[in-house]
Each structure stands twice: as structure tokens, then as C-alpha cells.
């Protein structure tokens, strides 16, 4: 990324945030849609954006932060370009899901909910992906991989930049 691309991107995000505020100005119950909109713009909810929302809605920062941490849909840390979900549901558990997760943590060098420093991957666990017949299962973004063994993970991950 060139050094001048960043500010242009920031200006665009700032513009979108102001539009978001404008759209919801004076509307009751706007906090959650604004948080969702802001997350769509920034990919997550940075501290300064939470403070901006707090000032815009005249709500204490503590309350905005409380709501943002209550819902699993909101992220307070930057998210990776690729979301890796490892299933630890019952069927996957029985067929070695824990070993898959263990290996995945090693491959990526991060734990559950964390993101690699290069923002390439975010690792999450899920309770069921709804395809127990394929267990143990993982998903990377919208792609599903089943009947896994730990040695297959590296090859899968390499497909995602």
C-alpha cells in the first residue's frame, strides 16, 4: 500500500461515517444500527469511532462500549481479511475437532478470537456449522472443508491471501 493511499481511504471512511450519523440523526434506538454501520465502514469498532458515536448520540462512552461488547456481532479489534471458523460442536468434537483447532492455532500462531499481525487471518470457534456429516469441519470465509485431518490445514490456508 502506498503512503498516499491511506489518507484517501480515511477521507472516504470519514465521509461515510458522517453520512451514517446524518441518516440516523434524531432517530430513537439508533445506537445498534449506527454501530453496525460503523463496523461495516471500518471492519471493526475502533476506540475513537466509539467515542465519536458516544458524542454524536450524547450517550456516555461506557454505555456505548457496554452495548458493543454485549453482542457477538461487534468486534473491537481489527479483523483479518479471511475468517477461519473451526467447529467444536458435538459431532466435530467426537471426530477430533479439538485436534483440528489445536493444529490451526499452531499454524496461525494465534488463539481463539485473535487476528494475525498481518491481518491475513482471524481465528474463531463455532458451536456447529450445520454439516455434521462432514465432521470435523472448518470454514474459511464462505468455503466449507470437511473430513479434515490436521495435516490438511496448511494447504487450505495457503489458498487465502
Amino acid at each position: 500500500m502506498s503512503s498516499c493511499a491511506q489518507p484517501a481511504e480515511d477521507v472516504q471512511k470519514e465521509k461515510e461515517l458522517l453520512e451514517l450519523f446524518e441518516k440516523w440523526r434524531g432517530v430513537k434506538g439508533a445506537l445498534i444500527p449506527i454501530l453496525q454501520g460503523a463496523q461495516a465502514i471500518y471492519g471493526y469498532l475502533p476506540k475513537d469511532v466509539i467515542l465519536r458515536i458516544s458524542r454524536e448520540l450524547k450517550l456516555p462512552p461506557s454505555r456505548v462500549y457496554g452495548v458493543a461488547t454485549f453482542y457477538a456481532q461487534f468486534h473491537l479489534k481489527p479483523r483479518g481479511r479471511n475468517i477461519v471458523r473451526v467447529c467444536l460442536g458435538t459431532a466435530c468434537h467426537v471426530r477430533g475437532g479439538a485436534k483440528i483447532f489445536e493444529k490451526m492455532q499452531k499454524e496461525l500462531g494465534i488463539g481463539n478470537g485473535d487476528t494475525t499481525e498481518d491481518l491475513r487471518y482471524t481465528l474463531e470457534t463455532v458451536a456447529c456449522l450445520g454439516c455434521c456429516g462432514l465432521s470435523p469441519v472448518i470454514m474459511v470465509n464462505d468455503d466449507t472443508y470437511g473430513r479434515l485431518t490436521p495435516d490438511k490445514l496448511k494447504g487450505i490456508l495457503d489458498n487465502y491471501q
Binding site: 466509539i50 456516555p60 462512552p61 461506557s62 454505555r63 456505548v64 462500549y65 457496554g66 461488547t69 454485549f70
Partner: peptide, 16 residues
Amino acid sequence: LTDQKRGFDTLIAPAF
């Protein structure tokens, strides 16, 4: 102070 997260992870603490 605010309540953050939920369930077992609930924590009463300042914002952030």
C-alpha cells in the same frame, strides 16, 4: 462504570 460482555464473562468496569 458499565457492564461489559455477558454471561460468565460479564465484567463491571470503565469503558474500554
